[in-house]
């Protein structure tokens, strides 16, 4: 894990850079990453927030990122700098999958 790529968002997730819009947040609801497919510009910080009553995690398919288990209302942020598709899934419930397309 590269520490520079992400930061645990405890308490500061919503204070991320002002230019970011609502579409940089991915909510985990009903065992689904919403939106399941997101497009962002390189350098965008994406916040994953778990709104389920069960823990989830965010794991990159390529192994480049592995969040801790997010309990209810916990969140984690990830800054994406590499253009292309970032595919991820839940490490506890791997049928939950999502994709972020990073534009240059």
């Amino acid at each position: 894990m590269k520490a520079s790529l992400f930061a645990l968002a405890l308490g500061l997730g919503l204070l991320a850079a002002p230019a970011l819009g609502a579409d940089t947040k991915i909510l985990i609801q009903n065992f689904t990453f919403t939106p399941t497919h997101l497009e962002v510009k390189s350098g965008t910080t994406v916040i994953f927030k778990n709104e389920d009553d069960i823990p989830h995690s965010v794991v990159a398919v390529d192994g480049s990122f592995h969040s801790r288990a997010l309990d209810t209302d916990d969140q984690v942020s990830l800054t994406l700098t590499k253009p292309g598709d970032f595919a991820y899934y839940c490490g506890l419930h791997p049928h939950m999958q999502g994709k972020i397309t990073v534009l240059p």
């Binding site: 794991v59 398919v61 595919a87 991820y88 899934y89 506890l92 791997p94 049928h95 999958q97």
Partner: peptide, 14 residues
Amino acid sequence: IALVNVVNLKAGGL
């Protein structure tokens, strides 16, 4: 026989 089927879970898998 005690088996462990909760490690190295693959994306999209069971």
